[in-house]
Design a protein around this nucleic acid. Structure first.
Lengths: 97, 97
DNA sequence: CATATATTTGCATTATTGCGCAAATATGTC
DNA sequence: GACATATTTGCGCAATAATGCAAATATATG
């Protein structure tokens, strides 16, 4: 197993492994439409600047996609990517021997 | 979604989301037999005491099982638990809308 | 019991992280 | 452009976490 692969996976899990960030992810789970940051603020009781940073962290980890359509800035889950990586890890743990 | 559930899931992901700990997990993936701590030390270049602490962290998160058979102390992956939790999260992200 | 090895724990250090606040920078509206 | 709102960034602080070393505590073996 390459070190970089381990690091990449660790980065994804670390990004998900914080209460407020995971709350944001669950919140976005429920949204059929992409959401703007303010709309997401109410799911965790922290300052808007903190939400902004968490969203950035999640986006950098490939968990969220930032959609800049014209003047709107909205976030949505990159479901495929997150699901694939989680499943890949699960499968590896389950089957490698 | 309950706060405690979010917290529990975040705790699991946080435990996995650190390079040396994830390296230990991958290392244990390859082991059909439970391993003692020293045997696991070579997969990450840190002090044995650090490995000991990481193993403890992983065990507390339900990722590893500590087997004390007689005088042997060995660690093994709790594959079922980790796999179930990862898959549950993946499914939630994939399907909840 | 004495000795060797394995593992954990206490302690100090350093690095990282989450947070709030205020200021700066968009971005949209009139 | 002036103004309101949304978002990001700089800064400092407090809490957490990772690490190494040395000492303590097992645990085996002679």
């Amino acid at each position: 197993m390459k070190q970089t692969e381990i690091q990449d996976t660790a980065d994804l899990l670390k990004a998900l492994g914080e209460f407020n960030r995971l709350s944001l992810v669950y919140r976005l789970c429920e949204c059929p439409q992409p959401q703007n940051a303010m709309c997401l603020c109410d799911c965790c009781s922290v300052d808007a600047s903190v939400v902004s940073r968490h969203l950035k962290t999640l986006a950098q980890a490939g968990i969220l996609k930032l959609d800049k359509k014209g003047r709107e800035r909205t976030y949505s889950l990159d479901r495929a990517n997150v699901v694939n990586q989680l499943r890949a890890l699960a499968t590896k743990i389950e089957t490698s021997l």
